[in-house]
Design a protein around this nucleic acid. Sequence first.
RNA 1: GCGCUUGUAGCUCAGUUGGAUAGAGCGCAGCCCUGCGGAGGCUGAGGCCGUGGGUUCGAGCCCCGCCAAGCGCGCCA
Length: 557
Amino acid sequence: MSGILALKKRLIELLTQAVGELQQQGKLPAVTLPEINVEHPQQPEHGDYASSLPLKLARSTGIDPLTIASEIADLMVATPEVGSVVVAPPGFINFSLKNDWLTGQVESILAAGDTYGNIDLGGGSRVQIEYVSVNPTGPLHVGHGRGAILGSTLANVLTAAGYQVEREYYINDSGRQIDNFRRSLYVRYQQSLGVDSEMPTEGYFGGYVVDLARAIVADEGDRFLKMPEPEAVQKLGEVGLARMIDSIRSDLELLGVGFDVWFSEQSLYDSGQYQKVMALLQQGGHLTEKEGATWFTSTALGDDKDNVVVRGDGSPTYFASDIAYHYDKFVSRKFDRVINIWGADHQGHISRMKAVVGALGIPPEQLQVIISQMVTLRRGDELVRVSKRSGDIITLRELVEEVGSDACRFFFLSRSADSQMDFDLELAKKESADNPVYYVQYAHARIASILRLARERGVSGQGGDVSVLVTEPELTLIRKMLLLPELVETVAETLEPHHLTYYAVDLATVFHSFYKNCRVVSDDRVLTPARLKLVEAAKTVLSRTLGFMGMTAPEKM
RNA sequence: GCGCUUGUAGCUCAGUUGGAUAGAGCGCAGCCCUGCGGAGGCUGAGGCCGUGGGUUCGAGCCCCGCCAAGCGCGCCA
C-alpha cells in the first residue's frame, strides 16, 4: 500500500486503540464508537491531519470534548511519521508530520516511478465500464464527447486503483432506428445515382447520410440498385453501418478514447442470449401480457410503471435487448461490477434497469449508472440546437479539431457529471490560450526544461540528500504530491473524475510557486542534486495526473 | 402532476460525505523581469451558500416545504 494511505489508516487505528484504552480505564463510558476518520484541515496551522473524534464522543458521553481530546492525545504512541499531536479547541486533535518523513517521501515517489499513485482498492476485481454506446446512425456530437471522456478517465483511474477494467462500447446495430437508418441511406443512395426516391418521414435527413451514400457510390458503384429492394436495403445498410462505426471509432481515437470490446446488440439475438433471458424472466413471473404486448412488471419491484419488452408485432424493445445485455455482462461474463455512463436523457431508464437486474438475481448495487448532464452548444450568443435528424450538427470531430484533444478533455473533466454545461465554441477557441490546461502542461514543460539544463551542465539528482528540502515551498510541494494516492482513492470510490482537474491545477500552482522561490540548478552542490530529485518526482506526479486525464505531458511547448 | 439533476463571488465552477476564518480560474484594482521557460509569481476588493423552517455542541453539506432552470415520464433509443 502506498505510504500515505497506510499512514492515514495507522492514525485511525491509533485513535481507535486510544479510545479503547480509555474505555477500559473507565475514563470513557462504553458507548458505541462513531465512525473514526481523519481529514486534511484547511488551515496549515492545524497540521497535516485532524480528527474531530472528541467532538463526536462528547455527544454520547456528555464529557467535555477538550478533556477527551487531551486524554486521547496522551495515549497516542510515537510513530516515525508523526511529529506532533496537538489538542485544539473546541475539541480537535491535530497531527503534524515530521519533516524528515516528508522529505523521505521524495525517494519513495522516485522509486515508485510510473506506478506512483497506484493503490490496491480494487483487489483485482473485475469492473466493466461501458460508455458512449451511441447509435451508429449518425456522427458523434459534443455531448457524446463528455461521456466518452468521463468513461475513459474513470477507466484509467480504476485501473490505477487496482481493478481489472474492461472498456466497452455497445453497438445498437439492431432495431427500429437502424431500419430507419438503412432506409434513409438507401434513398440517398438511389438519389445520388439519379433515381427518384423519397425519404421516409421519420428518416435521417442529415447531410452526412448524403455524403455516406455518395462515398459508397464512389467505392462500390451501383451494385445495390441491381438487387431487390429489401436485400439492397439490408446489404447497403451493412456497408453503411460499418462505415459509420469506423468513423465513430476514429472520432473517439482523436480524443484519445478507446475500447477493449465493441459489443454488438444483434449478437444477443444471434447467440440466443435474448431468448434465454426472456425465458428466465417468464419463469420468475416477471412478465405479463396486456394490451397485446409483453410487459416487465417492474411495479411489483417498486418501480413506478411497467415496461414493454415485446411489442404487439412481436419485435423486442430496446429495453428487452438491454436486459439481455446486462445478463450477459453479469452472468455470462461474470463482472463483479458494471458501470454505465449514460446521457441525461436516459435518466428514466435507470430504475427499470436496476429492477430487472434484481429480478435476474443480481444485487442491483453492482450496477452503477453515471448520468452525464446535457451539454448545450453555442456560438457566441447563438444557441446551436443539436438534433441528429434535423441535420444541424456540430460534430465532436469538429470540436476536437478546433479546440484540441487536451483542452477538450480538461474542459469536459473540470465539471462534475451532475451539472450541465454550456460549451461556447467561440469562447473555447478565443480563450484557448487562457485554458488551465496550458497552465498545468506548462508546469510539466518547465520541469522538463530544468532537467534538460541539468543534463547540459552534467549534474543530476544522483546522491542527492532529500533531507535538506526543508523550506516552506519545498515541503508544500511534497505535501501536495503525497495527495495523489488519496485522490485516486476518492475518484475510484465516488466515480467523480472532475477532482483530477482541480488537483492538477493545485499541483501546478505549488510547483510554480516553488520554482519562483527555489533555484534548482545552481552552484550549491548539496541543494542542486536534492532539488533535482524533488523536481523529478514532481514530474512523475504531474505526468501521472495528466495521464489519468488522458492528456499529454509535453517536454516542450 | 410525478421522478432525477442543478441553484455557492460580476462570470464559469470546486467544496475531501456534519467540523475550525466557505475556495479556485476568468474578470476587476495594484505589485514583481541582474538567475533554471513571464504560458509565471505576489497582494487586494468582491458572499444572506436560491428561499423558509427543522435536526445538534456545530449545517453550503442531513430532513421537510416553497421558488427557479434542465432532463425524463413512448409498443423511441
